[in-house]
């Protein structure tokens, strides 16, 4: 039972972790909660589904690659567009304005999908056969292994990108200080757009994984996972990339255990309670330090 819950928790957690990166990266550079990120996640799932339906070939490596490429590129592009249209004009506005704008975008994107694709949930086709392993009374599926490892690989790639590439370093510099980065010759607008693209792409991949895991998607699928991924980002200290990854796994495990040992009706409540408690007790997250406002 315990091991089983742990495995399920890690699978779910890897989706949250991937999803949380988009919140944390955007918060890092813009200090804003990108409320529309949950819709980027949803769009990724839909892009992936579109590709799955179009592709004639059965399960194969290249087919899966195409599905994820479509989802990540589509989500990344929309995230970038959203930044350009709805957030950039508000960069010097009062702090709550971009949040309100983001909520507007969230409403728009959800309803756009509902009106164009449909309000009912859509099945996610199983293109490749899922095998179940059983050992010591624990079930582990190839799908769970796939989800976990793909998420981990993407996170490693992100880490590599941030540490080794010029663009990645510029992104970290921008998160530290816009003005100084600009003076160092970094085009801050480009970097912010890139942050949305990368964060959005990872969110899109998480959307596809979510679709594969639960077997169906819906226009409003982003809301609850979105709150949970945001909670994961807060747990890890918003703006802290490794923290968000850790937070995602912690939250996934917590949720599965809460559903298993407490009550499944209240599993969503758990995330909300964790969110409130962490923000009140340790708003800097588990690994973050407290920042004092300069006066």
């Amino acid at each position: 039972m315990f091991i089983q819950q742990l495995i399920n928790g890690l699978t779910l957690g890897s989706i949250y972790a991937l999803f949380a990166l988009g919140y944390t990266m955007v918060y890092g550079v813009l200090l804003m909660i990108n409320f529309a990120h949950s819709e980027i996640f949803m769009l990724g799932a839909y892009c992936g589904l579109g590709m799955l339906c179009v592709l004639p070939m059965a399960a194969s490596g290249p087919a899966m690659f195409a599905v994820f490429a479509a989802a990540m590129f589509g989500s990344g592009a929309v995230a970038m567009l959203v930044e350009r249209v709805a957030y950039r004009p508000l960069r010097h506005a009062p702090r709550l304005s971009p949040l309100i704008s983001a909520i507007g975008i969230s409403i728009f994107l959800q309803n756009l999908i509902m009106l164009t694709v449909g309000a009912q949930s859509m099945p996610y086709p199983e293109k490749f056969p899922i095998r179940q392993f059983e050992f010591w009374g624990v079930t582990l599926s190839t799908l769970q292994i796939f989800i976990f490892f793909l998420a981990v690989i993407l996170m490693l790639l992100l880490n590599l990108f941030l540490r080794k590439t010029k663009m990645g370093k510029a992104m970290q510099a921008t998160a530290q200080n816009h003005l100084v980065s600009q003076l160092m010759g970094i085009n801050v607008n480009t970097i912010i757009a890139l942050t949305f693209f990368v964060g959005g792409g990872l969110g899109g991949a998480a959307g596809v994984l979510n679709g594969l895991y639960y077997g169906s998607i819906k226009y409003n699928m982003g809301f609850f996972p979105g709150i949970k991924a945001f909670t994961a980002a807060v747990l890890g200290g918003v703006g802290n990339i490794k923290g968000a990854m850790a937070g995602g796994f912690i939250l996934g495990i917590l949720e599965v255990f809460a559903a298993g040992y407490l009550s499944s009706e209240y599993k969503d409540v758990i995330a909300f309670v964790v969110l409130i408690v962490v923000l009140i007790i340790k708003p800097g997250g588990l690994f973050g330090e407290q920042v004092t406002e300069k006066i």
Binding site: P89, L90, I103, G104, I107, F108, L109
Partner: peptide, 16 residues
């Protein structure tokens, strides 16, 4: 059906 779609756009437009 279109009501919420329009609200989303109006919210963004007003705040900007």
């Amino acid at each position: 059906d279109y009501r919420m779609l329009v609200f989303g756009v109006v919210m963004v437009a007003v705040i900007i």
